[in-house]
Each structure stands twice: as structure tokens, then as C-alpha cells.
Design a binder for these strands. Sequence first.
DNA 1: GGCCTCTTCTTGAAACTTAAACAAGTCGGC
DNA 2: GCCGACTTGTTTAAGTTTCAAGAAGAGGCC
Lengths: 167, 167
Amino acid sequence: MRTARPEDTRWLTDQEQRTWRAYMHAVTLLEDHLDRQLQRDAGMPHMYYGLLVQLAEAPRRRLRMTELAIGAKITRSRLSHAVARLEKNGWVRRENCAADKRGQVAVLTDEGYEVLARTAPGHVAAVRQAMFDRLTPEQQKSLGEIMSVIAEGLQPKDGGADLPWLR
Amino acid sequence: MRTARPEDTRWLTDQEQRTWRAYMHAVTLLEDHLDRQLQRDAGMPHMYYGLLVQLAEAPRRRLRMTELAIGAKITRSRLSHAVARLEKNGWVRRENCAADKRGQVAVLTDEGYEVLARTAPGHVAAVRQAMFDRLTPEQQKSLGEIMSVIAEGLQPKDGGADLPWLR
DNA sequence: GGCCTCTTCTTGAAACTTAAACAAGTCGGC
DNA sequence: GCCGACTTGTTTAAGTTTCAAGAAGAGGCC
């Protein structure tokens, strides 16, 4: 990241630039689309919906705050605010963690589960319509591989795959 | 989007679900990564940087607000706030539009151009490292096609490709 | 001209995110 | 036991985005 000298920069080729812009446009439009869809039908932004989904899938519908944050790829701070809001809606409840007195556990309430059950079909349909219905099976496979590679590269694993010289 | 009955829902297959999650994770992590990179090196979020880039590429480094909003895939309201901030930084200037008294033209200042010139190399490097360096040429090509398809499908073209029955 | 409708852009408030600082608790070593 | 370093989760303030409302001009039609 510390390319100090502009003359050393490997600029994007025309092809790469087109790809990058298509990516940015698609991502911007899609996130916008889903945010609106969920705000309208479920009364919450996409990220919050994702939190409820994770809780619904977890054993006993509960997760430590930190695990939830990691799973959702967000900071603990952001999660704190989000859970506060979801709690106000009655969709999530906080409990103390028995094993670690610092810990908090977010629990999906029955009411929260209801919201999810009621709105999931519409959301899946939106995702299908915007993405899967427009892609061939090969493209879907390819997309999955590509996104996995990118996500892996950005995972803040302090194991230090990014810092081999510190091994 | 009006799938009222859950029993009619075509849920995502396991494969599709994996793809969708990989997508969400990659997109979340990448946007986060680039936002941090640009906040640190250029003092602005990714979206704002994109606005300066568009202005820099436009003839005479200026664009009507609405065109800029369309190009960036954001609402005029959001753009209004964003330009207000960039103006405060001295990177953009507003001018009245001669042809349309309602219109405003956003103009990239020399100072704004400087910021771009100074920070572009670092940003390109970040994009390369996070995306292009990790993908094969075939994957890059595929990604471009896939994202174009998705973006097209979400383009708010009132021509109504989404509403064929209204034709 | 006068009227109606649409477009352009801005505004203000509420919601959401970020960054930094902090209280409280854990853990290992001494 | 106690110290120091680290972890957990929250809080505050500042920045950004959204939503609804509105001022001002454009443009068509009579």
C-alpha cells in the first residue's frame, strides 16, 4: 500500500478498470436495493437482518457478542449499537455470559424469529431476482470462487498470512 | 418481491447460499478495507473519492449534480451533502449552470486534483492487492461479466424492463 | 400570459457508522 | 496474591446516509 512514487504505479488496464467499475456499480446498486427492500418489508437495514439470521442459525439462537461481530464482519462497536436497536424492537435480548463476566450473549427472541420467518421469503426472492436468476450455473460457481478468494485475502487473521516475514 | 406465501418460496440451495455468503463477506470486507485505506491516506471515504475521480475525468473537470449522482449511483440528496463536505475541504467548487437556473455544476479544484494525484497510486495498489492480484485472467473476465449483468438488472431505468406488463 | 406538472437541488431531523477512550474482567507470570 | 498486558463490550462525539419536505425553475398546454 505504500507505493510512494506515482511513476512506479501499475495502473489498472482498460479491461481491469471496466471490471472494477462494473463491480462497484453492481455492489452499490445491490446493497441499496436490498436495504430498501428490507427497510420497507422488515423495518431494518440489511446488516441488521443478517444479524438476526446468524442468531437464528446458532445453537439455542444465541451468540456471544464477539462471535456475532466476527461472523458478520463488523466491529464490536457497530454491533453494540445494532443490538441496542434490535433490543429496543424486542427482536433480540441480552444475557450475561456465565463463563466470562465481561461477556454478553445476544439472544433472538420469539418475536425476532417471527419477523425473520415472515420476511425471509421476500428477501430471498429479492436476492434471486437481482442475482441468481440472471446468472448461468457456471457464472454462479465462478462468482462463489472469486468472492471466496477475495474474502479470504481480507480476513483479519492475525496469524499473519499477510506478514510472512514475521513468522 | 411479493411472495406472500412462505410455502411457495424457492429457498437458496446450499450452493447458492455459500455463494451468497461469500459475496456478502467479500463485499463487506472490501468496502471496509478501502474506506479505511482512503480515510487514512486521503482523508475521505471511498464514495467521496469516487466523486472526485468522476469529476477529474469529465470535460473541464465539471459535471452537473444530477449527472454526477447518476454516475455514482447515489441519490441527489446524498450527493448534496457529500459535495457540501468536499467544498468545505476546498476540493470541489459549485457553480451555477448557465443553461438551467435550477442547476448546479460541481467543479474539481486544483487542490482537489492534487489530492487525487497524490493518493491514486496507493488506492490502485490497494484494489490490486485485494482483488486483481488474487484472480486469474479468466476469473477477472468472468467477474466483469457477472457484475455487469447484475448492475444492468438493477439500473433504475424507467423504461420499465422490470414492468413488461405496462408496455 | 397563466396554470399545471415535473425536475433540480437543498435542507433538517433521525438513523446509522466510525473512531477513540474507557470500565471491567481475564490470564499468565512472578 | 498481585501485577501488567490483553480482551470484552459499551459509550461518546463526530461524520455520513436516509427520508420526507420544500423552494425554485423548466416546460407543455390552453
